[in-house]
């Protein structure tokens, strides 16, 4: 028997005794006293199945329409200390990019070949390190900004969903000190369940080897639990939407 077999055998042996159903020992609910104002009741409708579709009912609420979702995304991005802007057209977006370039004095840009990011790079008029076909790590590291596309923006959490296919590989969105995401407004989805549904629909079964949610710029609280941005990944995250 190899280790795989040994471990699986041990698991099967162990599982012969059934376990009590989950949460049965949970503390009693705090019933409210009728007619006495006090703490809210902790009793809640219990989920009946663990099916993922139900998650939407428990997770933070997201409004149904685009304007609400956009507002929620903007609010979340602001809380996360990311910059989010939506533009009426490409001209405005390009102008904002150029302004950012000059403000931060970008000399070298890193990006990948795709419609939105290529267009952005054209506007920036700086030498570009393209990651698509492999790249020199030191060259990428010395870029001032990484410009990528994404798969979705998630209103519920203010996250950007990227994959190794949609965002020029694994390192581009995390190695340069500033990550700029260029997205279309149609890419805004309501919540995490919607984001996972999108991944399934777009890629299954040949998923990209890396898929990830980016929720604000890189951060740490490891020194006295004080928030510092730019621990290892980008110090800045800018999301431009058109």
């Amino acid at each position: 028997m190899n280790e795989r077999e040994k471990i699986l055998t041990r698991i099967r042996e162990a599982l012969k005794v059934p376990a009590p159903s989950p949460g049965t020992h949970a503390p009693a609910s705090h019933l409210p006293v009728p007619g006495v104002p006090g703490l809210p009741s902790l009793r809640v409708p219990a989920p009946t199945t663990a099916a993922p579709v139900e998650a939407r009912r428990w997770l933070p609420k997201v409004g149904p329409g685009f304007p609400e979702q956009l507002a929620l995304f903007a609010q979340n991005a602001a809380d996360l200390k990311a910059t989010f802007q939506i533009f009426a057209n490409w001209t405005e977006l390009n102008a904002a990019l150029v302004q950012l370039r000059d403000a931060e004095n970008w000399q070298r840009v890193a990006s990948h070949q795709s419609e939105l990011s290529s267009q952005a790079c054209a506007a920036l008029q700086r030498p570009v390190c393209w990651t698509d076909k492999g790249y020199d790590v030191l060259a990428l590291e010395s870029c001032d900004v990484g410009v990528t596309e994404c798969d979705a923006l998630i209103a519920q959490t203010g996250s950007v969903l990227v994959t190794s296919r949609s965002a020029g590989g694994r390192a581009l969105s995390v190695l340069p000190p500033h990550h700029v995401v260029i997205a279309r407004r149609e890419q805004l989805v309501a919540d995490l369940p919607a984001a996972f549904a999108l991944l399934q629909q777009k890629y299954a079964p040949e998923f990209p080897s890396m898929m990830g949610f980016i929720t604000g710029p890189s951060r740490t609280g490891d020194i006295e639990r004080i928030l510092v941005l730019g621990a290892h990944g980008p110090k800045k995250l800018t999301i431009f939407c058109v």
Binding site: P27, A28, V33, V36, G38, L39
Partner: peptide, 15 residues
């Protein structure tokens, strides 16, 4: 508090 969920009754009485 946690085994029996008693939080409000004593406060209702003290109130």
């Amino acid at each position: 508090l946690r085994e029996l969920g008693i939080k409000q009754s004593p406060r209702a009485l003290l109130g």
